[in-house]
C-alpha cells in the first residue's frame, strides 16, 4: 500500500457524525460531529477532560461508541477492531508513550511497516528467500521514515535508551512507516522543550506536505495556532467551535470558555 495523492474531491477524508461515548453514565462524547478534508492539519483542542483523547480512542477502535458514525474515505470505521482500522490507513501516536521498549529504534519502526509486509509464519521460520528480500525492503522503508524524523543515526539503539523527546519522535516515525492517509498525533509536544517543539512544528508541516492528513490533539497553543489549517474546540464532550485559527481566536464563546473557566493550558 502506498500513499494516495490528495484527491481534489469535495468528499471529506474523515466525517464524524453524532459520536457518543459514555463511561458509567458520564458522557465523555456527547454527539460530536466534524469533518476533516484531505491534506490538512486539523487540530482538536479543549480543556483537560473535554474528550479529546476519548475521541482519538473511539476513532481508533479502542472504545465502542454508543451512537454516531465515523466515515473514513467514505467507509464506516465504527465497530472495526483497531488493527482493521489501521489497515484502512489510520495511524496514531500515544499521549503516554507506547513504544516497544523491548526492541531497537529501527525494529520499532519496522513494526510500523507491518501492514505492508507479508507475515507467513512458516516462510519466516524457514527464512525463505522472499522473507530475506522483504527484510531488506522493510529496513529500507523504516530508514525512510527515520530519516524524515531525523532519527537515522539512532536506528540501532535500544528504544529505551533514547531521551524522552526522541522517543516521542520514534512514535511518529513508526506511525509514518505504515504510510497512513490519516495520522493522529496525541499531544506530541507534551514534555518537549522549546527547540524540540519548533522542530516538531516543522516535522508536522513536512508530514502534511508529503500528503498525509494530520489530526492533532495538543495543548501547546502557539504550536496549534501556528501549524493547524483548521481547529475543533471541544468542551465537556461537545463541539464548542470549529474554524480556522483566526476564527477560533476571535470566537467569543471560546474566549469566554477559556478566560471565564478555570482552564489552564500547559504552554
Amino acid at each position: 500500500m502506498t500513499a494516495l495523492p490528495p484527491r481534489a474531491s469535495s468528499l471529506p477524508l474523515l466525517a464524524v457524525t453524532g459520536l457518543e461515548q459514555s463511561f458509567g453514565g458520564v458522557m465523555a462524547l456527547a454527539g460530536v460531529s466534524f469533518q476533516v478534508a484531505e491534506g490538512l492539519i486539523y487540530a482538536v483542542i479543549g480543556p483537560n477532560g473535554a474528550g479529546k483523547t476519548t475521541l482519538f480512542n473511539a476513532l481508533c477502535g479502542f472504545y465502542q461508541p454508543s451512537a454516531g458514525s465515523i466515515r473514513f474515505a467514505d467507509r464506516e470505521l465504527l465497530g472495526l477492531p483497531p488493527y482493521r482500522i489501521a489497515a484502512r490507513g489510520v495511524a496514531r501516536t500515544f499521549q503516554n508513550l507506547q513504544l516497544f521498549f523491548n526492541m531497537t529504534v529501527i525494529e520499532n519502526v519496522m513494526v510500523g511497516c507491518h501492514l505492508r509486509a507479508k507475515t507467513h509464519l512458516f516462510a519466516a521460520a524457514l527464512r525463505l528467500p522472499g522473507i530475506r528480500r522483504q527484510e531488506h525492503q522493510l529496513r529500507a522503508w523504516a530508514m525512510e521514515a527515520l530519516e524524515l524524523c531525523e532519527l537515522a543515526d539512532r536506528a540501532g539503539q535500544p528504544a529505551s535508551a533514547l531521551p524522552y523527546g526522541l522517543m516521542k519522535r520514534v512514535e511518529i516515525a513508526r506511525a509514518l512507516a505504515a504510510k497512513p492517509r490519516l495520522l493522529l498525533l496525541d499531544e506530541p509536544a507534551a514534555g518537549l522543550n522549546d527547540t524540540e517543539t519548533l522542530a516538531l512544528r516543522d516535522l508536522i508541516a513536512r508530514i502534511r506536505d508529503s500528503g498525509v492528513t494530520v489530526l492533532l490533539v495538543e495543548h501547546h497553543m502557539p504550536l496549534v495556532m501556528g501549524v493547524s489549517d483548521r481547529l475543533l474546540v471541544l468542551d465537556y464532550g461537545s463541539v464548542l467551535a470549529e474554524g480556522t485559527p483566526a476564527d477560533i481566536q476571535n470566537d467569543a464563546r471560546v474566549v469566554a470558555a477559556y478566560l471565564g473557566g478555570a482552564v489552564s493550558y500547559a504552554v
Partner: peptide
C-alpha cells in the same frame, strides 16, 4: 522476522501493536 517483531510488539505494548495493524 516481521512475525517475530509483531510478537515482541504485542509484549511491548498491545495497544501500539494493534494500531500498527
Amino acid at each position: 522476522s516481521q512475525v517475530g517483531r509483531a510478537l515482541r510488539a504485542v509484549h511491548g505494548s498491545e495497544f501500539a501493536a494493534q494500531m500498527m495493524g
